[in-house]
Amino acid sequence: MASTWGDGVETLAAGLEVRAVTGASAQELESDDFRLVDAARQGDRAAFGRLYDRYARMVHGILLGRVPPCEVDDLVHDTFLQALRQLHTLRDSTRFGAWLAAITRNRANDYHRRAVVEVELPENLSAEGAGVSASGSAPDRDQEAADLLAAIRELPETYREPLLLRLVEGMTGPEIAARTGLTSGSVRVNLCRGMQQLRERLSR
């Protein structure tokens, strides 16, 4: 049976050590989130701003794999606004990251639901067509970034998301796991397999 958890994953995951997230352990992160979410619920905008600073890269990376790049910045803003509106429905404040990741994926799907009638997305993204702009770089560098992004976006979703968070947003594997609420084992396996598939695509 097909599964995200292929042969050998159990062994690999079991062998993984829980490493500290860069700058803060997962537990510290949860504890901080708890305080910030609680404060944001009381109307503290600065606390919500700190949650934004902490999670904007995750939201940006998830969206980059799912919607046209020119739409990503607006949708990051929309996603945080939606999270702010629904903050009172979050049951476990320590799981803010996983909850926000789910809202982000939902927001991306919602974008496609609305956009499907209006515009057919291009199969191959280019810097011009997809609105990719790598700030402060030459056109050929923009094109290279757009081509690489297009190659990553062709990968299965399971691999696409951790790869974008790692390669574009600069998050480490432990950080991706802590922020998204996924296990270290699954993030590591998906990064590894995604990278393998990306290498194969780029070498063609």
Binding site: D53, L84, L167
Partner: peptide, 25 residues
């Protein structure tokens, strides 16, 4: 890959969110 894709990274500061009370259900 990191170097080529770094330019796409999120780099915007937090926007001014509206008062939470204003957008509650």
């Amino acid at each position: 890959l990191e170097s080529a894709l770094r330019g796409l990274r999120h780099n915007r500061p937090a926007p001014a969110f509206p008062e939470i009370a204003e957008i509650t259900p």
